[in-house]
Design a protein around this nucleic acid. Structure first.
Lengths: 196, 196
DNA sequence: GCGTTACCGTAACGTACGCTACGGACCGGA
DNA sequence: TCCGGTCCGTAGCGTACGTTACGGTAACGC
């Protein structure tokens, strides 16, 4: 036996480097060389940690999901009412900080990549549906009187609104300012009260 | 003098080929060779018509805007009331047909490209703001009693919802079915009645 | 009809990509 | 201390990209 490495740690660091490059240079700028440079190693090490570029992409996509999922968990747990939880989850999905704008850019990059990569498309669908499920459960908690199908429709609509705000704010933060985003979400949420 | 060519026609045909490749292979698959093959010519002709690849991209982006703009014009003109016009414009922006799904894919591609290309980012902002202006004017026509700032906020929210639906439906048409999209838009529009 | 000129196909250049083969470096065990 | 195996940096392969240079070709004016 000899030299042992922390595989998980390397994967995480390389995923973070991948993400950083994605956010900064966009999808076309995401090359193994750029990732290696950002991570402070060589392409050899990158391809010893991940079998190929697609494996790296998949792992970075999972990392993005984990980050947003954890933040959603935290927002949900910190709220004391279902209504506050729903609002907190949607607000955190919007992008008030620079860090989350970066996430939004990466998200858009992966969305575009999913259009041509079936594996990434599967991941996107899976993660997005999980997000819809989460929101639908919260909507059902806020309005237990509504049929589940209604809650699900409302949830898909809310998710589309939030992701649309995120995507548009990534390119035009002036038009889709933080305040505009929160305003849009709150207005959409107000419908939960006024309708039967 | 000698051989004259129809520059505008060539630009249009090459833009269409660019768009077709974009929709089918995504942004990474958009190469000058692929465009030339799709257009039935060579890369030499492509680069005699457009100075470089970016010029081709810019022209294709303008073409996308022109198509969606024309369809919005038609939808708006065919409606007899402001409310019907607003609904028609938003519905046509959503993607009920395969042709518009293609447009949605191209739109997502250009959105991602805009994250790394300042020129495309400028174009995106310009076109998107024009769309927001159009929707805001329609909202103001439906509810003349509301202050313009309110109409604009509602418009940005509606645009974010529509573009979010488009983007998500491009990758997951099962979850974001045509009916789900129209349902979401109509529900958002219903707010125009119920609120003061 | 013929020369001139605009036009475009051909071919290739330089670059950067994903990926691989190989050899040295490093570390745990004896 | 030395051995053996694991690990990773180096170098380079083949490919495909954007772009360019050049020569052939087709059309217009005279």
């Amino acid at each position: 036996m000899a030299r042992r490495r922390d595989l998980a740690d390397q994967q995480q660091r390389l995923s973070a480097a991948t993400w950083s490059v994605l956010a900064e240079r966009g999808l076309p700028g995401l090359t193994l060389r750029a990732v290696a440079e950002r991570a402070g190693c060589t392409t050899g090490m990158v391809l010893h940690t991940f079998a190929d570029k697609q494996a790296l992409l998949v792992h970075a996509r999972e990392l993005l999901h984990r980050r947003t999922g954890q933040r959603a968990d935290a927002a949900q747990a910190a709220a004391d009412t279902p209504r506050a939880a729903l609002r907190a989850v949607l607000w955190q999905a919007a992008s008030p900080t620079e860090e989350k704008r970066e996430e939004a850019r990466v998200w858009v990059g992966f969305l575009a990549a999913a259009l041509a990569d079936p594996v990434l498309a599967d991941l996107h669908r899976s993660y997005n549906r999980r997000f819809v499920d989460r929101v639908a459960a919260l909507v059902a908690a806020v309005r237990p009187d509504r049929p589940p199908a209604d809650c699900r429709a409302t949830a898909t609509s809310l998710v589309a609104l939030v992701e649309g705000l995120n995507a548009l704010a990534a390119v035009d933060p002036a038009t889709y300012s933080d305040q505009a985003q929160r305003n849009a979400i709150d207005t959409a949420l107000a419908r939960l009260d006024t309708r039967p």
